[in-house]
Design a protein around this nucleic acid. Structure first.
Length: 418
RNA sequence: GGUGAGGUGGCAGAGAGGCUGAAUGCGGCGGGUUGCUAACUCGUUAUACAACCUUGUGUUGUAUCGAGGGUUCGAAUCCCUCUCUCACCGCCA
């Protein structure tokens, strides 16, 4: 959530920031809304004060008529209060609703841009293999090895689901263990197993709601399937006051993720790339504001290390202004090399959300005696479904088999290839 | 899913329409006593928001006793809904 006080104090800078996000200047509107809110608030307070004062006097008045009169007076006060409260709660929620749908301000360092073409590649790593045979994509590899079954999945669940079978199912499990272990080593991330169903407030806290409700699956019981365990990991600090010495908090979690991807119909329909359900190992950090830039790099390094150990070629991009997500102020994407498309594909997104989420969830930390909003950061380390694609394709052999990356063999009981 | 009991400050625990932002105890903080510790003792000890100026470790106000509604001149206290915790029963990996 944006800091309305800061906007009131710095309307020009705020409008610049809105512009960078591709929005109209909104400071005027926000300031007006906030002013009318605080005006009615002051008015209401003074009415409440009167009511309380008179009410307190009533029991000590002996004269019956006087008493009656005073009671009548308070009654009419009450009517006024009720009226005002109605107005207030509507302007109040106007501002709240409006501001809850505004994205985070971008970091100054974020490059301007209009599409993913304007993302800036900042690093490349690993060797892209030259295959001396006709390569297959992961769908063909998976189906010919009888380890992926889309047909059955579409019958059982519908489009955008898949069965993984045999050693590919095992590989998915191996990757989860491997990634978690690697993360714990990289930064002493604490492993967490989280709930997969959450309530509305939780999703508001991290920013999926209220704006992106169509991207998230909702159950009859008003619980929502998490689209990422960022949601549950960051919400661990909701309504809490963290001791300064306990920062940074670092969490890692393996979980299924569910995305309805309402806006993505017809996109990437082939294969495992864009599924309604996929697994992901997530890393999350909660830091002091002054540490979050360094922490952002640590998260990046943590995710990169996994690709390095898996021996997968990748590059790191800094997202341009058009591509940074709603809650983030700065994001690095890691993209892994995919031979069948002869290009890189996003496999991890690592974001610094500043105090945007901690404001939304009212999470603070003690800075000496002051309470301030910590920064929250999250990243995939890594998306497992897409890691499977990368392994199937980058480690494929001419005979249709797929080698198991060295780092995973011990998690596969020594298995050499699929 | 059913039944019952509950949710009060950092914690424990009173309060059962106005004197209650809330007794008491513990803990915390500051002081006293003491060779040190302990014990004892005195004082102090919530948060958020707002208004005002004398811009201060300021004054005043409002809200907060799980959440949201309601009754009332007045609600921690009465009523309704929801939620969470605990116990027992049922079901269950």
């Amino acid at each position: 959530m944006l800091d309305i006080k800061w906007i009131i104090k710095n309307p020009k800078e705020a409008d610049e920031a809105f512009k960078k996000r591709g929005l109209k200047p909104l400071s005027d509107k926000l300031i007006k809304m906030s002013k009318s809110r605080s005006q009615s608030f002051v008015q209401l307070e003074s009415l409440l004060e009167q009511r309380n004062k008179f009410s307190k006097e009533i029991p000590s008045i002996k004269d019956k008529d006087k008493k009656e009169k005073l009671i009548e007076k308070v009654k009419s006060l009450k009517k006024e209060i009720l009226k005002l409260q109605e107005g207030k709660s509507s302007t109040n929620s106007d501002l709240d609703n409006f501001i809850m749908e505004l994205p985070n301000f971008l970091d100054n360092s974020v490059p301007d841009g209009k599409s993913d073409n304007d993302n800036i590649e900042i690093k490349k790593n690993g060797n892209i293999k030259n295959f001396n045979f006709k390569i297959k994509d992961h769908v063909d590899i998976g189906e010919s090895l009888d380890v992926i079954d889309f047909k059955s999945a579409s019958k059982v669940s519908g489009a955008r689901f898949a069965y993984l079978k045999n050693n590919l199912a095992r590989l998915e499990r191996a990757l989860a263990s491997f990634m978690i272990d690697s993360n714990i080593l990289s930064g002493n991330f604490k492993e967490i197993y989280t709930p997969l169903l959450v309530n509305e407030d939780t999703l508001k806290g991290t920013g999926q709601l209220p704006k992106f409700d169509s991207d998230v699956f909702k159950t009859r019981e008003n619980l929502w399937l998490i689209p990422t365990s960022e949601v549950t990991l960051v919400n661990l600090i909701r309504d809490k006051i963290i001791e300064e010495d306990d920062l940074p908090l670092r969490f890692t979690s393996y979980s299924p993720c569910f995305r309805s991807e309402a806006g993505a119909a017809g996109k990437d329909t082939r294969g495992l790339k864009r599924q309604h359900q996929f697994s992901k190992v997530e890393i999350v950090s909660i830091t002091k504001p002054e540490d979050s830039n360094d922490e952002h790099l640590l998260l990046l390094k943590t995710a990169e290390k996994i690709l390095q150990e898996l021996d997968l070629p990748y590059r790191v991009c800094e997202l341009c202004s058009a591509e940074v997500g709603f809650s983030a102020k700065k994001t690095f994407d890691i993209e892994v090399w995919i031979p069948s498309i002869n290009d890189y594909m996003e496999i991890s997104s690592i974001s610094n959300c500043g105090d945007f989420q901690s404001r939304r969830m009212n999470a603070r930390y003690k800075n000496n005696e002051k309470k301030e909003y910590p920064h929250t950061l999250n990243g995939s380390a890594l998306a497992i479904g897409r890691t499977l694609i990368a392994i199937l394709e980058n480690f494929q052999n001419k005979d249709g088999t797929v080698d198991i990356p060295e780092a995973l063999k011990k998690y596969m009981n020594g298995l050499e290839r699929l």
